[in-house]
Simulated scan of single mutants.
Amino acid sequence: MADITPQTVTGELVTLRDYWRYAISRFNAAELGFGHGTTTAGDDAAFLLLDSLDLPIDTLDPFLDARLLPHERQLLAERIDLRVTSRKPSSYITNHAYIQGVRFFVDERVIVPRSHIGEILFSEYLGEHGSSFLPDPFSVESAVDICTGSGCLAVLAAKFFPHATVDATDLSSDALDVARINVNDHEVAEQVSLFEGDLFAPLAGRTYDLIITNPPYVDHEAMAGFPAEHRAEPAMAHDGGADGLDLVRRILDDAGSYLNPQGGMLCEIGSGREILEEEYPHLDFFWVETAQSQDAVFWITAEALGVA
């Protein structure tokens, strides 16, 4: 396997099925890490191949036996080899990541987006009976995304809250450059404003109907054990301090000053529920269940945060 080059591969492999099988074998042999929207070698290989060919990433079967053109074979062989040799997440290789089927541009300047909050917004607002706890989407006039990264949640907020102005902040100017690409690509530039700064710092005097935030929340022990794929991402996008909750605490302590009455905050925190509930026993957290977790995201109202 180590002696096989992209050039020799393209002479032997013809169909998408050939490249999928080959990629799975290479990924397993290299013991790659996953967790950027995929959890297995098969799923990661499918994403890399389909997205590289601009095919729907969740529809592999109809294309498996399609014969590929020479330039397509070359592209796939090179990207399979790059995935193995660089151990970069596949999203960095294709420059795309998806939240509930919505495509976003990404590169090494931002973490690969995989927030539970995207799933929550889709399930709450596209569900049969509407949201059980979030405000009516047409009543939201202002929203903010703290630690926006690639800007994906700010873009989704603009789509789900059509009457809202949406602000988004990040400490990284590089991340905001990527966010600007996504804001423009999704044609929400008139609705979304980007601010560089530390959490709420650039927003003095502003208040919102809704705060959305997916801050860094990985603890130092977990970061020390990261596979190469996770180490390829910006460390500051993961680093939540010794127990992972440094930024979550700061956001929680300040959020009330930036919320309108009847508003609230949706915050992703990873695995820190017990710590947070012990430190803030007076706060009424509503923990939101997702496909992957029952307590990685909480909703808290402005009233619970002391907003009169």
Rank of each mutant, 00 (worst) to 15 (best):
residue 151 G to L: 07
residue 37 G to P: 02
residue 198 D to N: 14
residue 88 K to V: 08
residue 81 D to R: 10
residue 108 E to Y: 09
residue 185 D to M: 09
residue 249 R to Q: 06
residue 51 D to Q: 13
residue 295 D to A: 10
residue 74 Q to A: 14
residue 60 L to C: 04
residue 126 L to I: 07
residue 265 M to S: 07
residue 225 G to V: 03
residue 142 S to Q: 10
residue 189 A to Q: 15
residue 19 Y to F: 15
residue 147 C to A: 12
residue 205 G to I: 08
residue 140 V to T: 11
residue 145 D to G: 05
residue 258 Y to M: 02
residue 43 D to T: 12
residue 108 E to F: 08
residue 110 V to K: 03
residue 134 L to T: 08
residue 220 H to F: 12
residue 241 G to I: 01
residue 202 P to T: 00
residue 148 T to C: 10
residue 212 I to M: 08
residue 246 D to A: 13
residue 26 R to L: 06
residue 266 L to E: 06
residue 252 L to N: 01
residue 142 S to I: 10
residue 76 L to T: 02
residue 88 K to T: 11
residue 40 T to E: 05
residue 4 I to M: 12
residue 130 G to S: 03
residue 47 F to D: 05
residue 142 S to Y: 07
residue 86 S to N: 09
residue 169 T to E: 00
residue 231 R to S: 11
residue 3 D to C: 13
residue 152 C to V: 14
residue 122 F to I: 13
residue 206 R to P: 05
residue 190 E to P: 03
residue 101 G to S: 06
residue 246 D to I: 03
residue 149 G to E: 00
residue 160 F to C: 07
residue 263 G to L: 03
residue 166 V to A: 08
residue 201 A to D: 11
residue 201 A to T: 07
residue 99 I to D: 01
residue 215 P to D: 01
residue 112 V to K: 04
residue 55 L to C: 03
residue 171 L to G: 10
residue 207 T to H: 14
residue 175 A to R: 03
residue 184 N to G: 10
residue 235 A to F: 09
residue 79 R to Y: 02
residue 262 Q to R: 15
residue 165 T to K: 15
residue 50 L to C: 06
residue 85 T to W: 03
residue 1 M to Y: 09
residue 288 V to I: 14
residue 253 D to A: 14
residue 74 Q to M: 13
residue 85 T to V: 12
residue 161 F to E: 12
residue 29 A to F: 04
residue 77 A to G: 06
residue 195 F to C: 08
residue 44 D to K: 02
residue 248 V to G: 01
residue 272 G to V: 00
residue 181 I to Q: 13
